[in-house]
Simulated scan of single mutants.
Amino acid sequence: MVNIENPVTNQVKQCKVGWSWTVFFFGFFPMLFRQDWKWLLITLVVDLLGLFTFGIVSFIANVILAVLYNKFYLTDLVNAGWRPVDEASKNLLLAKGIALPVE
């Protein structure tokens, strides 16, 4: 888990890094609850395409997304201006390949 903060609003979020069990089991609902509209739309489009393949494409895409979604979500937050709260969170983000802007 990493702790990140929005320096403008002082809102702090605790986000998981790595495999997303919630995306694996619940599909697009975590994106809906996090108000992550970009990935919600992408997931819904892929799931709709899965209808034409009897769900095979949708299942494969959801497994891949479960592996990558938390990294995508954290990268989007960092690009939107969120910053790690502590040194441990900063080191974990860097270890997972999430580039932080130079301060």
Rank of each mutant, 00 (worst) to 15 (best):
F72A: 08
L40W: 08
T53N: 05
V67Q: 06
P30F: 06
V67L: 07
P30T: 02
G18W: 05
T22M: 13
W21Y: 03
T53Q: 04
V17T: 12
L40R: 03
L92T: 13
V23F: 10
C15I: 14
K71L: 05
S20W: 06
N3H: 13
Y69G: 11
L74P: 14
D47K: 05
V45Y: 01
F24W: 11
A95M: 11
W82S: 00
V102G: 11
G81E: 01
V57R: 01
L74S: 12
N79D: 07
D86N: 15
M31W: 08
D36G: 04
A66E: 05
F26T: 04
E5I: 15
L77C: 03
L74K: 11
V23N: 04
F25P: 03
A66I: 08
F26H: 00
W39T: 08
A66V: 11
L41Y: 03
L44A: 09
V23C: 09
I56R: 11
K16F: 04
L74T: 09
E87D: 15
I98C: 03
F72H: 12
D36S: 10
A61G: 14
L68C: 12
L94C: 01
V12E: 05
G55E: 08
N62A: 10
L100Q: 01
V45K: 02
W19Y: 11
D47T: 08
L77G: 00
L93T: 00
D47E: 13
L44T: 09
K38T: 12
K71D: 14
R83E: 06
T53F: 02
L48R: 00
M1I: 13
N3F: 04
D86F: 15
V67G: 02
D47N: 13
R83C: 03
L68Y: 09
V85Y: 06
F28E: 00
N6M: 01
L92K: 15
F24Y: 13
V57H: 07
A88S: 15
N10C: 07
W19G: 03
W19T: 03
L32Y: 07
K16M: 09
L51Q: 08
A61H: 12
Q14K: 15
L74H: 11
P7T: 02
R34V: 04
L92N: 11
Y73S: 12
P84V: 06
L65D: 02
F29K: 06
V23D: 03
R83L: 08
N6G: 01
V45S: 04
P101E: 01
T22G: 10
L51W: 09
K90Q: 13
G27H: 07
F59H: 11
V67D: 04
E87F: 10
V2H: 04
T53H: 05
Q14N: 14
F29Q: 07
Q35V: 13
V46M: 13
G55T: 08
V2M: 04
T9R: 02
Q11W: 02
I98E: 00
Y73M: 10
M31Y: 14
Q35H: 14
V85W: 06
N62I: 09
W39S: 09
T22Q: 10
F24T: 10
Q14W: 06
N70F: 11
E103H: 08
I60E: 01
E5L: 07
G81D: 02
